[in-house]
Amino acid sequence: MSAPLLSVDGVTRRFGPETCGVLAVDNMSFDVRQGEFVSIIGPSGCGKSTLFSMLGGLLPPTSGRIAVEGDVITGPHPAVGMVFQEESCLPWRSVIDNVAFPLELEGIGKSERHDRAQHFVELVGLHGFEKRHPAELSGGMRQRVCIARTLAAKPRLLLMDEPFAALDEQTRLLLGDKVLQIQQELHQTTLLITHSITEAVQLSDRILVMTYRPGRLKRIVEVHLPRPRNADVVTSPEFGATVAEIWSDLREEASRGMAASEVS
């Protein structure tokens, strides 16, 4: 077995003082191996987005260590690409210039970076929209621009924080299909943060289930659905069984979350 690309060891994050602050993530440990697609699933408020920010190096953990390719991270790591929950296209740039943005930062000349960006524009199915601006695109298309931009930087680890959360169910399934295709084509190691069980099962090799606040690792579910997969996988009996298995785990956590939000 290959060495882990991402290794998370006893990571804890607390907001506010130790006595009365909020413990968002508590002692999480897990690895992601080269080429794997791992999802982290948990109810709202379980610290998923906090974990995402820590893995991306945008937020330091209170304790514990996160290592990417063996380097303990202290800030954003060049091997990690992030796709945010909120659509994050630069509205003043065209699609192609958005996708080429990381290449521009590397100092690559205009024609070469456009050529390279074109490949990723086509990969996410936006051929013909290169000259459009984000305001002219639908929410799903804008999120695909963000995915293409992140992929253009050639990250060894792709981190995605509920990238399809704001989209409708059909678009989510189809975009899930797109992500599957991309993952199969690029063998992209991916860590997806989501609250959608179907999305997690459709896409992942492994699913880490988190508890409601404080976010701890509750259990790891291995998904044995055959690859290559597509959106049709959701109709198979194995898919249903895995979804039911995760739901039974999550149900308790989600109820705790709901009860807590009703009390407050």
């Binding site: 954003p76 060049p78 945010f84």
Partner: peptide, 13 residues
Amino acid sequence: RPVLIDVGHSLRM
């Protein structure tokens, strides 16, 4: 939008 600033940080600008 703070997410645009996060994009900048994640790209190590």
